[in-house]
C-alpha cells in the first residue's frame, strides 16, 4: 500500500523528467535554433534572481492582478445579486452583456492606453475588464440557482430586499461564487501578462517582450514563462484552499 502511494507520487515527476530530456534532446539535435533548452532556461532563471528584477516584476504583476481582480469583485458581486434577483433588470441588461462577453479583454488594450496612458492603471483596467463579466455572469447564475425555499423563508421572517440579499442571497451563493472567483483569478493572471506586453514597462509580461527585443534572449523568455506558470499555480492554490474551507464548513461537498 505504502509503496504504491509513493509510486503514484513519482509518476508525474518521472513524466516531467522525460519531457525535459526530450526537450533537451530536441534542442541538441537542432543547434541553430534560438529556442533554449531546459538547462539554458534554468540558467536564465538563475540570472534573473541576483538583480532583484524578478522579485520586482512578480510584485508588479501580482499588484496589478490584485487591484483589477478586487475592483471587479467589488462591483460584480453586488451588481450580480441585484441583476440575478430582479428579472426585469436582467432582461434589460442581458443583451448588452451578451454582446460584451465575446470581446476579448485584449481588444480593450488601445482604449485602456487611450484612457489611462501607459502604466499601472491601464493594466489594472484591462484586468478589471477581463474579470468583471465572467464574474458577473457567474454571480447571476448562482443567484438563479438559489433554492426558492431560502428566499421564501427570508421573506417570511420579514426581510426587506437589501437585508434579504445580505442575509440570504449572498451566503447562499458563496459555494458557487468560490468556483467563479477561482476561474476569474485564472483569467486575471492570463490577462496581466498580455497587458504588460503592451501597456506597461514592468512585470512578467514585460520581461518576456523585453528579453526578446533586447537581443533575442530566449532563455529569459522561457524563464519568464516558467515563473508565470509557477506564480499562477500558487494563486490558484490559495483560492482553492479558501474554497475548501468554506465548502467544508457548509457541508456542500457532501451533497454533491
Amino acid at each position: 500500500m505504502n509503496t504504491l502511494r509513493s509510486l503514484e507520487w513519482l509518476r508525474p515527476v518521472l513524466f516531467l523528467l522525460a519531457l525535459l530530456v526530450a526537450w533537451q534532446l530536441a534542442v541538441f539535435l537542432h543547434p541553430h535554433q534560438l529556442m533554449p533548452g531546459p538547462w539554458k532556461t534554468a540558467h536564465g532563471i538563475a540570472d534573473l534572481f541576483p538583480h532583484g528584477l524578478i522579485a520586482r516584476y512578480v510584485v508588479a504583476s501580482v499588484f496589478r492582478v490584485t487591484w483589477g481582480f478586487f475592483l471587479a469583485v467589488l462591483v460584480a458581486i453586488p451588481l450580480g445579486l441585484v441583476i440575478g434577483w430582479c428579472q426585469r433588470f436582467e432582461l434589460a441588461v442581458n443583451p448588452i452583456l451578451q454582446i460584451l462577453r465575446p470581446i476579448s479583454p485584449l481588444a480593450w488594450i488601445p482604449i485602456a492606453i487611450l484612457w489611462f496612458g501607459v502604466g499601472d492603471m491601464a493594466a489594472i483596467f484591462l484586468i478589471f475588464i477581463g474579470c468583471f463579466l465572467p464574474l458577473l455572469l457567474a454571480v447571476i447564475d448562482a443567484v438563479r440557482a438559489v433554492p426558492a425555499v431560502y428566499i421564501n423563508a427570508g421573506r417570511n421572517f420579514g426581510l426587506k430586499p437589501v437585508a434579504l440579499m445580505r442575509r440570504v442571497l449572498y451566503p447562499a451563493i458563496v459555494p458557487r461564487l468560490m468556483t467563479g472567483l477561482r476561474i476569474t483569478l485564472g483569467i486575471a493572471w492570463l490577462v496581466v501578462v498580455a497587458a504588460e506586453m503592451i501597456a506597461v514597462n514592468s512585470g512578467l509580461g514585460f520581461l518576456i517582450v523585453d528579453a526578446r527585443n533586447a537581443g533575442n534572449r530566449y532563455d529569459l523568455v522561457v524563464a519568464g514563462m516558467v515563473i508565470i506558470g509557477v506564480v499562477g499555480l500558487l494563486l490558484d492554490y490559495g483560492v482553492r484552499s479558501l474554497e475548501r474551507t468554506s465548502s467544508l464548513r457548509w457541508g456542500f461537498e457532501e451533497k454533491r
Binding site: 433554492p147 425555499v149 431560502y150 421564501n152 423563508a153 417570511n156 440570504v168 451566503p171 447562499a172 458563496v174 457548509w250 457541508g251 456542500f252
Partner: peptide, 11 residues
Amino acid sequence: FVFQERGVFPW
C-alpha cells in the same frame, strides 16, 4: 411557514 427540513439555512 415551515418547509420540510429543506428550509434550514446551511450557512
